[in-house]
Nucleic acid binder design. Structure first.
Lengths: 352, 352
DNA sequence: CTGAAAGCGCTTACAG
DNA sequence: CTGAAAGCGCTTACAG
């Protein structure tokens, strides 16, 4: 047999330059590897004396279990692929933090994949599960319909986060976008606004339709007819927020308030108002969605709908791991609460 | 197709829903597993006929190699831990994208670890290397001196990105912060400014000192004496950018321009000026550092120093993988170029 | 060019 | 409570 490349770790205790294995520990403790394994991983299966003996030997040898060997034997990678389309969006980091925290809690590793909506990249990460380097996939963001196979059955264990793939019934963790949007628009209505514009989200995302539906439902509940001219097509991006706001304000009868599908486009809208010399909220009120960190730094700070992103990430990772463990009676559709957070971008309409 | 010999697995599965292994492929192709392995991974070692035969068998069986088994055998995890302290900072995503792209290029996986500067968390990720689940570590951001052991020798293969651990001589990829800062301040001097403030970075970071040094060097080169009162202690955060700018503008003889250690604090400074009713760049010029995406969205867009973050990430990951492969003659200190990008936050000083 | 066999480092059913 | 042995699924030195 060839000897694999050896690295010289400066381990003072060990005389050999080979990493200590369970066999070394077993020898040191004068027990079998079976017992050594049990003492380390299932202490209740061995006597107290043996446990101490093995623990001490492991300590002395500077033993670190080889996780690859364990994975191979247990047929479990203890790693989860997290697939995001882009990562520059300030919406993601906090979700990812939640995912990472939950994974770490359970001794799982997080394999990060950034797809930039490239089918080849998506496939390469799905292959990681097929190749048993990962046990499951967390899907952040939709627009990955190509991942569905065999009549809408996703081929590997997975949980969707926030976005839902069209027509899939995969486990999912997110919020009730329609109800949240309703609350945001309702706030504007309560303030006295009657002419409320909407900068919509990217059509490719499932939340876009839900938020629009919430907007319409709130208007309807207030007895206000839906006016398609008041909906400017957006894409969640800053630049489009600016142009969409421009379209709305150029209307013969411009809105006195606007509900934006996300904070980033609301921030764009804010900048456009400023360029027009309009004061927010005196001249126009603006409501965002997501509560990204930046919405606190804007001028004025944005009234928005707070999504518990860390919790969503944490819950999604936990759900997937529970699912993989075969936990019974799991709720596979988790809807987390959203809060309307009032800041300085909304006020009663200004009489003109 | 004949049924393979039944194995006594603990789980009673029918042979058809067992994942195909190399042995299945070998049988199908009527060769040994050795030959099958070679045909798939080292085609030049087998005859063309065998290659085709095995490839076809693998295809027919729907074979996917088990990466855990391969890793165990080759003693190589093909995974790299990426350690970041926080991830909400808009500075990181693009670096991470570069890291991910390079890892994918080389068939490595990226294990993401978010430490929040917690020593326990840092250790748990280092253990991933000790446990042979990962081959090396990429360190994004300093403040992790606790990771150094035994006379400044980091215990596992690693490359630092941007930040340097104090006193370490680990491989590193980043920029020349001092020279870049010099260029930023030089730009202000060229515009005619003589009284230039500096909002510094977080003292715990190595780049902070370098950028301050660049600021001082530029002043010195212009024959301007360094005035400590013009340096406001910052921490790279928006809120501190605001208060630091407030300190500077409250000076008896306030600066006509300020060089900020990063964009985020420059953005905070911008908001403070606006609250003071001051116009940027008419009343005060502002230069940032990093060129995060937001610096384009600010009002006015920020003049700043562009760091090639994607490239830095890509180069760092590539360097680590090359190092692990034992590539000879590697340059282990890579300095990437920085560009001054002129936007609308700087102008000649306004006569008062 | 190909095959038989060893072995990477674990865990666990089985027997005592 | 403990040990001998099998086996997870690969790759590769060795021999032919």
């Amino acid at each position: 047999m060839e000897t694999p490349t050896k690295r010289h770790d400066q381990v003072a205790e060990t005389s050999s330059d080979r990493r200590p294995t369970l066999l070394d520990v077993a020898r040191l403790a004068r027990v079998s590897t079976a017992t050594a394994s049990r003492a380390l991983n299932n202490p209740e299966m061995v006597s107290e004396e043996t446990r101490l003996n093995v623990l001490q030997a492991a300590e002395r040898a500077g033993y670190q279990p080889n996780l690859m060997a364990r994975s191979l034997r247990k047929q479990q990678a203890r790693a989860i692929v997290v697939l995001v389309p882009v990562i520059e969006n300030p919406f993601y980091p906090e979700i990812i933090r939640g995912l990472e925290a939950a994974a770490r809690d359970r001794d799982y590793s997080l394999l990060l994949g950034i797809t930039v909506y490239d089918r080849g990249v998506e496939s390469s990460y799905i292959d990681l599960v097929r190749n048993q380097r990962a046990d499951g996939i967390l899907l952040l963001d939709g627009g990955m319909e190509n991942l569905l196979e065999d009549g809408n059955r996703f081929a590997v264990p997975s949980v969707q986060v926030i976005e839902r793939l069209k027509g899939s019934n995969l486990p999912w963790v997110g919020i009730d976008d329609k109800t949240a949007a309703f609350a945001g628009v309702r706030h504007l209505l309560d303030l006295g606004h009657r002419r409320i514009g909407h900068i919509s989200g990217w059509e490719r995302c499932s939340v876009t339709g839900d938020r629009l539906a919430g907007y319409r439902a709130a208007l309807k509940a207030a007895g206000i007819a839906f006016d398609p001219a008041l909906v400017a097509a957006g894409d969640f991006i800053f630049a489009r927020g600016e142009t969409a706001a421009a379209e709305l304000m150029a209307l013969p009868d411009p809105p006195t308030a606007m509900f934006c599908a996300n904070d980033t486009s609301a921030l764009g809208a804010l900048r456009h108002m400023r360029s027009l010399g309009l004061k927010v909220p005196r001249d126009v009120s603006v409501v965002g969605f997501d509560d990204i960190h930046l919405s606190l730094q804007s001028d004025p700070p944005l009234t928005t709908l707070h999504q518990p992103r860390f919790d969503i990430g944490f819950a999604a990772m936990t759900l997937l791991i529970d699912l993989l463990a075969g936990a019974p009676d799991l709720e596979t559709n988790l809807t987390l609460p959203v809060d309307l957070v009032l800041r300085d971008s909304t006020a009663p309409p200004h009489r003109r």
